[in-house]
Design a protein around this nucleic acid. Sequence first.
DNA 1: ACCTCACATCAAAAATTTTTGATATAATTA
DNA 2: TAATTATATCAAAAATTTTTGATGTGAGGT
Lengths: 92, 92
Amino acid sequence: MNNELQKNAKVFKALCDPNRLAILELLRGGEKCACVLLEQLDLKQSGLSYHMKILCESGIVASRQDGKWTYYHLSLDGRDKAVELLKQLTTP
Amino acid sequence: MNNELQKNAKVFKALCDPNRLAILELLRGGEKCACVLLEQLDLKQSGLSYHMKILCESGIVASRQDGKWTYYHLSLDGRDKAVELLKQLTTP
DNA sequence: ACCTCACATCAAAAATTTTTGATATAATTA
DNA sequence: TAATTATATCAAAAATTTTTGATGTGAGGT
């Protein structure tokens, strides 16, 4: 399968799981620590970690380390890139 | 799982498969008959049908019947809705 | 140094999606 | 009307994704 397509698909894959959309919704309210996300979602710790990795790799979410904690937030830059890609892919 | 999120996920699910992105790429060149798509892609007839259904249900692609043939094209309207949704979901 | 906490990674199980081949349907042509 | 063509649907197999529980890692705290 075409590599470019695989790479593009990755961005949208981040957006097509209900748990990940729920995470984005929480992050819209501002930066959150993994432990806070964990208690708001119906996910195990390893499950949250799995989803956060996908979101971060897509560029839509960015993370920041502070001592023991990891804080996640929406990336404006990632958003812009995703929007551009979406437009590019779907504009006749 | 939250129903609204499920519904939103549907639009992006359409975009997270390489075969479907390849289909969108072909449709960017203009409306195409299923039979034309079929010969350009590495898909069986039933497989193409499966993917076209997902793309149409997402609103990003629209179809038109002409006798025996089905023609598919990108929907500007669907695109705009998807872009708006993406912005909404990812804007802090 | 040892213990605990926050999170990441791993491998196996469970769930979901995609592919495949067979069959159905609807429009067209002979 | 029978045969053919284009596409849809179905069910089972194959592939991929997600969940789960166990274990690893690195930063503090004691």
